[in-house]
Nucleic acid binder design. Sequence first.
DNA 1: TTTT
DNA 2: TTTT
Lengths: 151, 151, 151, 151
Amino acid sequence: MSLNKVQLIGNVGKDPDVRYLDSGVAVATFPLATTDRGYTLANGTQVPERTEWHNIVLWRGLAETAEKYVRKGDKLYIEGKIRSRSYDDQNGVKRYVVEIFGDNMEMLSSPRQSQQAPQSAPAQPSGAQPVQQGSAAQSAPAGEMSDDLPF
Amino acid sequence: MSLNKVQLIGNVGKDPDVRYLDSGVAVATFPLATTDRGYTLANGTQVPERTEWHNIVLWRGLAETAEKYVRKGDKLYIEGKIRSRSYDDQNGVKRYVVEIFGDNMEMLSSPRQSQQAPQSAPAQPSGAQPVQQGSAAQSAPAGEMSDDLPF
Amino acid sequence: MSLNKVQLIGNVGKDPDVRYLDSGVAVATFPLATTDRGYTLANGTQVPERTEWHNIVLWRGLAETAEKYVRKGDKLYIEGKIRSRSYDDQNGVKRYVVEIFGDNMEMLSSPRQSQQAPQSAPAQPSGAQPVQQGSAAQSAPAGEMSDDLPF
Amino acid sequence: MSLNKVQLIGNVGKDPDVRYLDSGVAVATFPLATTDRGYTLANGTQVPERTEWHNIVLWRGLAETAEKYVRKGDKLYIEGKIRSRSYDDQNGVKRYVVEIFGDNMEMLSSPRQSQQAPQSAPAQPSGAQPVQQGSAAQSAPAGEMSDDLPF
DNA sequence: TTTT
DNA sequence: TTTT
């Protein structure tokens, strides 16, 4: 009775930060930028270009794929859901972050010719369809994240 | 070269708050809830149901439609984009909010039998396809919002 | 490097037709209607309302859910992919059909008060998020369908 | 009360065919391929790679953009809706085609360094957000297409 | 008829 | 902090 879906095509702001929970589950986080080009209003006002930064969080297989193949500057398609989280910052002020839990990823940049992504290893280990994460995002109990991911 | 798209189906948390900018442009804001049902992990751990609240912002025609027809409890489909914004709270602490600027809305609840949404007035003035807002969201210069929308 | 995604909200044209392959895999098919409301062109031309019929195909768990809970007239959200298929009709003419292989379904109608969908049995056995089918659609070898589904 | 949305990322099968209706409206058509990579079932069965061809139809501004900048082999993001149409073939047999009426396009290939897409002319004349076609797709009366587009 |  |  509910839908919470996000689809982004943008550029990776920096190399993924990948952690492994005690359970062995991989979690990757990185910023992704989408940019509006700016435009001119009917009255002549110039509205400048605007970049939106999204906090991407990937789990398990997708996180491992990101660790191997996603790099700063890459163009990605990410599909997932919006999730907000709060934490207390160093001054005890409650802070909120909004994250995109990705369950589907498409690498849109040309594959690199490197030791990281050798020709013989597919950048996407799964099917021709975008990498489907199955129930990975759902499999991580909220508790596991508590202190592990001060994004 | 960029895509920033959100699609939600959820329930309206309270009646829309509608304002009119000096330019006459309508802006509606309201919270929308999407809910994950909760599930049981392979190891037996119960992950409880979880509700995500989204700050919806609608402009112009969509805002006016919302003012007329959207009410607390209604089920809606909202399509739009993610937009974050910062402001200084009453303590001078910089705060961030993430909003969903909707450019497409579908009313999924049965129409009310009321003075607000009379049978003779369609809940959706535009086409059979979801209400397309055209360039409305883009037409509002950033400046206009500065102090008008302390969401 | 590829995305093939369809999202529909529409009404079920008739009760699902559910078959079980020899492997025990359930396959449900039914038509879903989406409707454009019609509009008036700038030059005054009236473009009438238009209904599009989609051939929905569901597999495994989703097919079983459809068998139990989906009925003619219901409003559904369906997410999936486009798939075309050809067959020879009774006159030996090659025919093409386009189907929507759903991998996600949301029931948007109020639940029926009936023996078919008792209060105690949730219409959607899976998570709060839309019913994710995992890799079910991919798990059915093309061959299995050959003569089984003259849609 | 209805949603009919398609999102594709794929490769253009051949240069767009662009026609101009008597009204001056541009219509571009071209095939777009999305490819499933193939996979191995649990029982060891190999399901081969599979390519789906989509008949893309663009109107007005998007058609003109396609005429100028879209070429065989390009990778595109296309958003639009499914529309089916019937016609009688040369043998008087009724045929059906399913087309994707695009209302949003993103060019994902690196821009060509050519006379067709000079550096000084942006591949996307509109905003930073995907090229929004406004109501173009809705503005073409069905009648106009009758014999004009034997796709 | 594309692409990896 | 990306990209065009």
